[in-house]
């Protein structure tokens, strides 16, 4: 195993160009577990990217929120970030423990592409765009094209996840996650609801209930067209149907953390609850 500590984006891209299959080490909270267990090839090249200044922090650029791939969960939890991306901040706060959140990064969550990745349903609902860069150039992919399967993504050899771009949306945002307890929990089912008041659209992201994060189009359409946007209210019937459609769109499996039936049920419950918090339920 050989290690390069990249000190700049150029340094990382040059090293990656020479070793296109190098392992990218960001916060280490996933990769180090593999290394500790001896799962990795002795001949691997590791590029540590957590010292690259260009990948740090976040900024508001016109109508886009620009997040560096090296942004940690701990930074996403902070109040200034929560003010601009509340659902992402909520999701970040549910990741592992404070120790994990101090180390783990947004880019790492995308790179690992676990179905249980906590930021993924939020990024899906936010219409996030993933910016990749290699020595040859840069390209951008919508989150749903970037995540291609269980622990698989569209990053090509020689590419590095550089930034995540999120278009601005004004309105209620919420993230929900089901697990056996509050701390140190890997998601059993998760959901993000994003309200875009300006365009009168509700966007829903489902996590851990499919190989990739899901956007239930029918459920979104049903709620978006039936909300009373002027009064910010919604009927009980609409909420019930939204819940049913969201649950139907889930593609969960049975595994050691939960059954498919439980996960589908949980999605329905979380969909209704978040929508009822975003809009006032009309009294009959």
């Amino acid at each position: 195993m050989s290690i390069t500590i990249a000190r700049s984006l150029d340094h990382a891209l040059t090293t990656l160009h020479e070793n296109p299959d190098a392992l990218i080490l960001a916060g280490g909270t996933d990769l180090m577990v593999q290394i500790n267990r001896g799962y990795l090839n002795e001949l691997s090249t590791v590029i540590a990217v957590n010292r690259i200044p260009e990948l740090q922090g976040w900024k508001q650029q016109d109508d886009t929120l620009v997040l560096g791939a090296g942004l940690t969960y701990a930074e996403m939890e902070k109040s200034d970030f929560a003010a601009v991306a509340p659902a992402l901040a909520q999701a970040a706060r549910t990741v592992g423990s404070p120790q994990i959140r101090n180390a783990g990064t947004l880019g790492g969550n995308l790179g690992t592409a676990s179905p249980a990745g906590d930021t993924l349903p939020v990024l899906a609902a936010l219409d996030a765009v993933i910016c990749l860069r290699s020595a040859q150039g840069a390209r951008r992919l919508p989150i749903l094209e970037f995540i291609t399967g269980v622990k698989n993504n569209a990053r090509q050899p020689g590419e590095l996840i550089e930034e995540v771009h999120i278009p601005a949306a004004q309105g209620h945002q919420e993230f929900c996650k089901i697990g056996p307890r509050n701390a140190m929990v890997i998601s059993v089912a998760s959901l993000a609801l994003i309200v875009d008041q300006q365009n009168k659209k509700v966007r829903l992201g489902l996590g851990t209930v499919g190989p990739v994060p899901l956007r239930p189009a029918e459920a979104e359409e049903h709620l978006s067209t039936n909300v009373n946007w002027a009064a910010n209210t919604v009927s009980a019937a609409t909420l019930d149907q939204f819940s049913t459609l969201a649950a139907a769109a889930a593609r969960p499996i049975d595994d050691h953390r939960g059954t498919a039936a439980y996960r589908r049920h949980a999605i329905g419950v979380m969909a209704r609850r978040t929508a009822a918090r975003a809009f006032t339920e009309e009294t009959a």
């Binding site: 909270t29 590791v46 180390a103």
Partner: peptide, 19 residues
């Protein structure tokens, strides 16, 4: 295994020592 690196507490087991 909690240790402090600069100002943050992290799990020492998840830090690649050489970095």
């Amino acid at each position: 295994c909690s240790v402090r690196i600069d100002d943050e507490v992290v799990c020492g087991c998840l830090v690649l020592a050489a970095t």
